[in-house]
């Protein structure tokens, strides 16, 4: 079906807390993501980016409005919406291999097929040699690579990524961006990727959504027409720099208003 992998954010509003402590986090945000599109969401810190992804994942409920994934209204979490978190969320009691096969095993995939699938994703994120390690024995970058492999091995329609490289040093970050570009070019999943790093946004995305400061609304929707396959060298090209300037200007308005 052509709907598979689509993501539709429809007039989503979210408030946290009650009474005096009430915080309006999202204020009627709407946009559409087409199947197989890589959409990056940027915005000032605290504008509701994580909240939006959590609503799409079904982990928290919108106060009003709705989110549709593959044409179906989100009411609860499900394996059709994979997520990679900023914090490390590998299951510490499972080895790398067991973490990656968690989803397929739940679905009852037979062992031979499952092993092949896991081998493929471990190879794709370059961690074949660490299959039998526990998360504790891995670096932060390795853990996020496993988290990406784990999410993809479950074959979701949509992959939600909430600043997955935010806690990594810039060296590791660049490696991870290259790896994600490569992996994505193989899978072409629909991705909604949150970051506060503009270079990362342009390098990865087909499109960058800029949000306003809290309460989060849609501020700008910028198409990134840089041809793929991409690699980090594009960051020096004039097109890239022009886009960066544009996004920075959109963001700067928001951040200045904050003070």
């Amino acid at each position: 079906m052509s709907m598979k992998g689509s993501l539709s954010i429809q007039d989503v509003t979210l408030t946290y807390g009650k009474g005096e402590k009430r915080v309006l986090a999202l204020d009627g945000i709407s946009f559409e993501v087409k199947p197989n599109e890589f959409t990056v969401i940027v915005g000032p810190s605290g504008c509701g980016k994580s909240s939006l992804l959590y609503i799409a994942a079904g982990l928290i409920d919108a106060t009003s409005g709705s989110i549709l994934t593959s044409g179906k209204r989100v009411v609860e979490p499900g394996g059709d919406r994979g997520m990679v978190f900023q914090s490390y969320t590998l299951f510490p009691w499972l080895t790398v291999r067991q973490n990656v096969e968690y989803g397929p095993r739940r679905k009852g995939m037979p062992a031979p097929e499952r092993n092949k699938l896991v081998d493929r994703y471990l190879n794709e994120v370059g961690l074949t040699a660490f299959a039998d390690h526990y998360p504790k024995q891995l670096s932060g970058g390795m853990m996020q690579r496993v988290a990406i492999a784990r999410a993809l091995a479950n074959d979701p329609d949509i992959l939600l990524m909430d600043e997955p490289f935010g806690a990594l040093d810039s060296q590791t970050r660049h490696t991870m961006q290259k790896l994600l570009l490569r992996v994505w070019e193989h899978s072409h999943k629909t991705v909604a990727f949150v970051t506060h790093d503009i270079d990362e946004a342009i390098l990865l995305g087909d499109r960058v959504i800029v949000m306003t400061a809290r309460p989060g609304k849609l501020k700008a929707d910028i198409r990134i027409d840089i041809p793929r396959p991409r690699n980090p060298d594009v960051e020096l090209e004039p097109d890239f720099i022009a886009l960066k300037r544009r996004i920075l200007n959109e963001l700067r308005d928001e951040i200045d208003e904050d003070h």
């Binding site: 959590y54 994942a57 079904g58 982990l59 979490p77 499900g78 394996g79 919406r81 994979g82 997520m83 978190f85 914090s87 969320t89 299951f91 968690y102 989803g103 739940r106 679905k107 988290a147 784990r150 999410a151 479950n154 979701p156 939600l160």
Partner: peptide
């Protein structure tokens, strides 16, 4: 137990 650990399991179909 970390909430995000539980959240991650939900997004894997738990």
């Amino acid at each position: 137990v970390s909430r995000d650990l539980v959240n991650a399991s939900y997004t894997l179909g738990t």
